[in-house]
Amino acid sequence: MQNQESEQVVRHPFGKFTYLLCSILTLLVGTAFMGSSRVSVMLFCLLFSTVLLTAVVSVCHRHKTLGIGLTLVVLMLILNVSSFLTRSYSLTVLHNSLVIIFLAFVFYHILSAVFHDDRVTLDTIIGTVSLYLLAGLLWSYLYSTILLVDPAAFRYDLVNAASEAVTLRNSDLQPLIYLSFVTMATLGYGDIVPVSGPAQTACYLQAVFGQFYFAILVSRLVAMYISAATHKNQQHAQGS
């Protein structure tokens, strides 16, 4: 019996959210070194597709949800390639909207899995971190969509090496990802400033979300860990 349990541990050394977290971190780190060339865009699409596929595998355990997840991924990939080749405004808006819906779909399923855990495990912690990073990506695409509708929605106070002002575009996902996580962490550096009403609303909603995320979810994990540790100590005391 012990040999079977040890074999099972070896076969499943990682939790169900580990590969998702690794793919998200690879995307975020890789984006920092990408430019605006076609090769960089293709590399970003490849890394983001990896995130989408690992997200489907991580959260979709039933046949129905797996089919929905895979359908959304295929549609997003088709729209991404089509909008990249045709430079179509409507296809880009549709692609971004579908990405936001998909990330919300994945977020809901991971959140349900985390809340249904009756004890804190490494997989629970990894799922909680993945949730936070997915929320940052979700708002990045929301900001990109806002820029598509209103190119002057954000003011980008940045000057390049040639002393020229840099304009923030919806295709510049690296600054938008940066804006997303800076806003969610309520750092407020002020180099990218929301100007329009929708942009300001999206920013303060993300800031509120970031505060409530740590106040509710992380505090719940701490309470679960303390409760489990207390219960274990009580059992140990009764046994001795």
Rank of each mutant, 00 (worst) to 15 (best):
Met1Ile: 05
Asn3Trp: 00
Glu5Thr: 09
Glu5Ser: 06
Ser6Asp: 09
Gln8Met: 09
Gln8Asp: 09
Val9Pro: 00
Pro13Ser: 07
Pro13Glu: 08
Phe14Met: 09
Phe17Arg: 10
Phe17His: 14
Thr18Val: 02
Thr18Lys: 03
Thr18Asp: 15
Leu21Gly: 04
Cys22Met: 14
Ser23Gln: 02
Ile24Phe: 03
Leu25Met: 07
Thr26Cys: 11
Leu27Trp: 00
Val29Met: 07
Gly30His: 07
Phe33Ile: 07
Gly35Arg: 05
Gly35Met: 05
Ser40Trp: 04
Val41Leu: 11
Val41Phe: 07
Phe44Met: 06
Cys45Ala: 10
Ser49Gly: 07
Leu52Gly: 00
Leu53Val: 14
Leu53Lys: 00
Val57His: 00
Val57Asn: 02
Ser58Leu: 02
Cys60His: 04
Lys64Phe: 13
Thr65Gly: 01
Leu66Ile: 01
Gly67Ala: 12
Gly69Val: 04
Leu70Trp: 11
Thr71Gln: 03
Val73Asp: 05
Val73Phe: 06
Leu75Lys: 06
Ile78Cys: 13
Ile78Ser: 11
Asn80Thr: 12
Val81Pro: 00
Phe84Cys: 03
Arg87Val: 01
Tyr89Met: 08
Ser90Leu: 09
Val93Thr: 14
Leu94Val: 15
His95Cys: 11
Leu98Met: 11
Ile100Arg: 01
Ile100Glu: 07
Leu103Phe: 14
Phe105Ala: 02
Val106Gly: 04
Phe107Pro: 01
Phe107Cys: 08
Tyr108Val: 13
Ile110Ala: 00
Val114Trp: 03
Phe115Val: 12
Asp117Arg: 10
Arg119Lys: 14
Arg119His: 10
Val120Thr: 14
Thr121Asn: 02
Thr121Gly: 02
Leu122Ile: 13
Ile125Val: 15
Ile125Phe: 11
Ile126Gly: 04
Thr128Gln: 08
Thr128Glu: 09
Tyr132His: 08
Ala135Lys: 11
Gly136Ser: 07
Leu137Arg: 02
Leu142Gly: 13
Leu142Tyr: 10
Leu148Tyr: 01
Val149Asn: 08
Asp150His: 06
Asp150Gln: 08
Asp150Pro: 03
Ala153Glu: 04
Phe154Val: 11
Asp157Pro: 05
Asp157Phe: 14
Leu158His: 15
Asn160Asp: 15
Ala161Lys: 15
Ala162Arg: 13
Glu164Lys: 15
Val166Ser: 01
Val166Lys: 01
Leu168Arg: 04
Leu173Val: 05
Gln174Cys: 00
Pro175Val: 04
Tyr178Gln: 12
Leu179Tyr: 03
Ser180Gly: 01
Thr183Asn: 13
Met184Thr: 12
Thr186Lys: 14
Leu187Asn: 12
Leu187Ala: 12
Leu187Val: 13
Gly188Lys: 10
Val193Phe: 05
Val193Arg: 04
Val195Ile: 13
Val195Leu: 08
Gly197Arg: 14
Pro198Cys: 05
Pro198Ser: 04
Ala199Cys: 03
Ala199Leu: 05
Gln200Phe: 00
Cys203Leu: 04
Tyr204Asp: 08
Gln206Trp: 07
Ala207Leu: 05
Val208Tyr: 06
Val208Pro: 03
Phe214His: 13
Ala215Arg: 13
Leu217Gly: 05
Leu217His: 03
Ser219Tyr: 12
Ser219Pro: 05
Ser219His: 10
Met224Thr: 10
Ile226Lys: 15
Ala229Phe: 05
Ala229Arg: 11
Gln235Phe: 07
Gly239His: 13
